[in-house]
Amino acid sequence: MEQLTAEFGGSARVGTGVGPVLEKFESVSRIAVLRGGGLGDVIFAIPAMAALKAAYPAATLTLLGTPVHQALFAATKSPVDEVCMLPHAEGVRPGEEDPAELDAFFDDMRGRRYDLAVQLHGGGRYSNPFLLRLGARHTVGTRTSDAASLERTVPYVYYQHEPLRALEVAGMAGAFPVDLEARLAPADSGASAAAVMRDDGAGPWVVLHPGATDPRRRWPAGRFAELAAACAADGFRVAVIGDESERALAEQVVEQAAAAHVHSFAGDLDMGGLVALMVRAAVVVGNDSGPRHLAQALGVPTVGIFWAGNVINAGALGRSLHRIHASWVTACPTCGIDITQVGWTAPRCPHDDSAVAGVAVREVHEDVRSLAATELTKVDA
């Protein structure tokens, strides 16, 4: 215990936290959480933010995030009180940096006088110096050996479940977990399901998301098309979703499925519409991507298609509502390079071959049918 106290800069407590839970900071009324990235990235941070809100119930929690984060928290109920847009900054938010914009941002942040700033954005090489410029009284976060130190830090090791990593950081601020995984609910003013659903007289909806930021994480479009046709034959209506950049991919799935009641919604839904569609779905099937993580957070059954390494970082913890099909490929199918090494320790080859192509359609389809047929009685806490 003495060693923990010396290393982490606080009094360690034994409890049900993920890792050590230290003493809370005193007089915390404003909290800033740094988490850039995409939809899935911020969903991973929600359990930590819920823990921080429970530990400091009188505090306002501000997420320093991106436009998609702002849209998410406008469409759902969450622990986030407000979203403040990050400026473009290397390693924090991609885009061309504007020094004047950065200076104005940090002037504003320092003027808010945050009591606690929490870094949930990677290993800290770029994000820790960024966080320190906020001028908060206390700082906690993750840290690689070459990153600037914060007041209390957790060693950053890539292969760790992302929500649990974030909860370990929250523990550094004295926050015990409330949930191990994200929980969201549609906002009271959210889009109505009727505004996004096409009532064509068929059965329940199965939602498919064939996209992923890294092409290697994508199950081939032909597999999704085969699954869509099988679900349609079972009497489901099938919605293929994605953002504007995935419209062609979704249309390819619909075209190859060549089945009635298979529709593309890609590029047509805002966040409120996506949430409305998700909560009406019987099952959502997707790669390791933001929409699948969103469905899970909304309590919708999911079937996930994952490369094995991504299961460690992002897979659902339970199997009652969430099934995972993992590919154990460890080398690029084209050049044979080891793909288990993370980007900053080994070069990424230029090939985008799917690492999950070997997952069988029949097995995914069986899980869709099983989950759709299962009715669970949910008890509100």
Rank of each mutant, 00 (worst) to 15 (best):
H69M: 13
P99C: 08
R247P: 07
G242P: 04
R319F: 01
T144L: 12
D115M: 08
T60F: 12
G135T: 04
V238A: 00
L22R: 06
I337N: 06
G91K: 06
L294Q: 06
A266W: 09
E366T: 11
I312K: 09
A225L: 05
F8A: 02
L34S: 10
H293K: 08
A194V: 04
G135H: 10
M271W: 08
I46F: 08
D199E: 05
D353V: 00
G318S: 14
E363C: 00
G10S: 15
G17H: 12
S264A: 03
S11M: 10
V311A: 07
F106D: 13
V311Q: 03
E2C: 00
A173V: 08
R113Q: 15
R152Y: 10
V329Y: 01
H161M: 05
R348I: 04
K77G: 09
P94K: 12
F44E: 01
I339T: 15
L61I: 15
S264N: 05
H261S: 14
R165V: 00
A276F: 09
L64D: 09
R292I: 02
G111E: 13
V303T: 06
V157R: 14
A360I: 02
P94Y: 11
T62H: 12
F106K: 12
K24Y: 00
W307C: 02
G222D: 13
H121D: 08
L184A: 03
A259Y: 10
V207T: 10
T153G: 00
I241Q: 02
A32Q: 01
G318A: 13
D98Q: 14
G19E: 11
Q256W: 07
E82I: 07
V21C: 13
A175S: 02
G37F: 07
L86G: 00
G15L: 01
F306I: 02
S192F: 03
E82S: 15
V80K: 10
T139M: 13
A260K: 05
E2N: 12
V303K: 06
G37K: 11
V311S: 04
S29H: 15
A257F: 03
E26P: 08
A147W: 15
K53N: 09
G272D: 04
Q296T: 01
V157A: 05
A175H: 06
T334N: 01
E375A: 12
N287V: 09
S245I: 01
H209T: 06
P20M: 09
T76W: 07
M197I: 11
R93Q: 14
K53C: 07
L150Y: 01
A12M: 08
S264H: 09
A326E: 14
R112I: 11
S192L: 04
A295Y: 02
V68C: 15
A45I: 06
G124S: 04
S145Y: 09
V92N: 13
F73L: 06
D338V: 01
A228S: 05
R137W: 02
A89I: 02
E151H: 14
G273I: 03
A233T: 12
K24T: 10
H263K: 01
V206D: 08
M49R: 08
P57S: 11
V83Y: 04
R110Q: 15
D214F: 14
R217N: 12
L52V: 08
G309E: 09
A282W: 00
